[in-house]
Design a protein around this nucleic acid. Structure first.
Length: 431
RNA sequence: GCGACCGUAGCUCAGCUGGUAGAGCACUCGGUUGUGAUCCGAGUUGUCGCGGGUUCAAGCCCCGUCGGUCGCCCCA
């Protein structure tokens, strides 16, 4: 402390942290999301920050940059670390369901709001540590398609009512993987690559996609035409007179039509069928979701998910289909913060600052504060009998809306300056 | 992991063709007795990211390195 050599702290890139006034709004958001999720009957689950590496990599290649845990004082010749931070909440859920299979009641509906970690290079809206808010439904053997339709409805309700989101234009884009995969069947021997290219259509444009499909996937011009017709227009419109080229494609078409029709009570622009959407995660098998700011789709998806017919199958010998969606909380929040659209106000949750005009009023102040707290108000005590000038400006700076004078029992409204006699037992703020 | 740009007080930045650092904000105190937001005065704050080189002299030039931002990859 007294040393003149200070270590100058700097933020760790990709690991956001906020000031109290921002955090206050963040908590408001999390509470809001939690309430909506619970209103649909989802129950809360929290899993450890770490999973065994084998669990995380059970599905597909580990192309995600996973943070592996390594102990600082690892003993020489010690075994390699087997634990890693989870990079999403879906894989841990699958493990969770498999592990507690006997004790869960199906359909199992859970929400999970935790941090996840990805070792990617940070950018605007992309972090290395961030919060996701997931809802998923998992059932045994089969899961009604109604759940696929319920997901976007819940998300729409949640996002459009978040404080500060009222005027944001967002759009849920939905698709069904079976359509594109069915269509590509037999047209290329590199379907994954073709999907990756098509998924980028918004970013790189139709011409570039056309070029790449021909060059990298060896798809002939006629088939490219068919594909581009499918993904280059409003999907729901295209579906009306599209002929399926195989069973898988037909199934996908039927499913997406059903989902879209179930969502007809939402505003016109809220949900759009976009057949170019595939999503990178390889465990999705049917419906997929993506959500963007209509005026800034390049910012990336702020809420994605989909159906997976067999995720837990890696951990248990049962058929456990599920569908889920995840709010990219940090990405969404960061965008509104950056644009100054969050309702940032107070720096403290205190409603009242209990002043201390003189030391001999301390007991009285404590008593009044306790009474106020019992009645549901948040009260901070000023513990040093400094000039009132200081105490008031402290309240002002922290954005505490009321100050209390314990001596003669008066309360002052900092916004209006009005000061009146009040009883801590019965006092309530003006609105 | 690859490419482009950037790195000066806690924050945002200025610093002329190289001559050994400044502004605003913030912070502390004050403008007399128990009342804040404005205003005024005073004060504190820097190994100019780090290391090396060129030079009589470098924040400014060169090389390296680390860190940051953006793009690619991938994704919430």
């Amino acid at each position: 402390m007294s040393s003149n050599k200070v270590y100058k702290p700097k933020p760790v890139s990709g690991f956001p942290e906020y000031l109290p006034e921002v955090r206050l709004v963040e908590q408001q958001w999390l509470d809001h999301i939690r309430r909506v999720f619970e209103s649909y009957g989802f129950c809360s689950v929290e899993t450890p920050s770490v999973e065994e590496l084998d669990v995380l990599s059970a599905k597909g290649e580990v192309d995600k940059e996973i943070y592996v845990l390594e102990r600082l004082h690892k003993e020489e010749g010690g075994k390699d670390a087997r634990l890693a931070l989870h990079f999403d909440q879906t894989v841990p859920l699958a493990r969770y369901v498999a592990q507690h299979f006997n004790d869960l009641t199906f359909p199992f509906k859970r929400y999970q709001m935790q941090r996840v970690w990805r070792g990617e290079r940070p950018q605007a809206g992309r972090f290395r540590e961030f919060t996701q808010c997931d809802i998923d439904v998992i059932n045994v053997d089969s899961l009604p398609l109604h759940f696929d339709a319920e997901m976007p409805a819940i998300i729409w309700e949640t996002l459009s009512s978040l404080p500060g989101m009222e005027n944001e234009k967002i759009q849920l884009r939905i698709s069904n993987r079976k359509i594109l995969i069915g269509l590509l069947e037999g047209k290329t021997n590199n379907i994954p690559e073709a999907l990756r290219i098509i998924d980028k259509i918004e970013k790189i444009g139709k011409d570039e996609v056309t070029k790449l499909l021909s060059k990298d996937c060896a798809i002939d011009d006629e088939n490219i035409k068919i594909i581009m017709n499918l993904v280059g227009h409003d999907g729901y419109y295209i579906l009306q007179d599209l002929t399926a080229s195989n069973e898988m494609m037909a199934q996908g078409m039927e499913e997406i039509k059903f989902v879209k029709e179930q969502l007809s009570n939402l505003p016109e622009e809220a949900v759009k069928v976009d057949l170019s959407i595939v999503r990178g995660l390889d465990y999705y098998t049917g419906t997929v979701y993506e959500t963007v700011f209509t005026d800034d789709p390049g910012y990336g998806s702020i809420c994605s998910g989909g159906r997976y017919d067999d995720l837990a199958g890696q951990y248990i010998n049962k058929a456990l289909p599920g569908v889920g969606i995840s709010i990219g909380f940090s990405r969404l929040f960061a965008k509104l913060l950056e644009q100054g659209k969050l309702p940032i106000a107070r720096k403290s949750p205190a409603d009242v600052l209990m002043l201390l005009p003189a030391d001999d009023q301390h007991d009285k102040a404590t008593e009044a504060a306790q009474t106020l707290r019992k009645n549901g108000h948040n009260v901070e005590m000023y513990h040093k009998a400094q000039k009132l000038q200081k105490q008031l400006s402290y309240a002002e700076k922290k954005g505490i809306p009321y100050v209390w004078f314990p001596g003669d029992g008066e309360v002052k409204d900092m916004a209006t300056g009005e000061q009146v006699k009040a009883d801590p037992q019965s006092w309530t703020p003006h609105e």
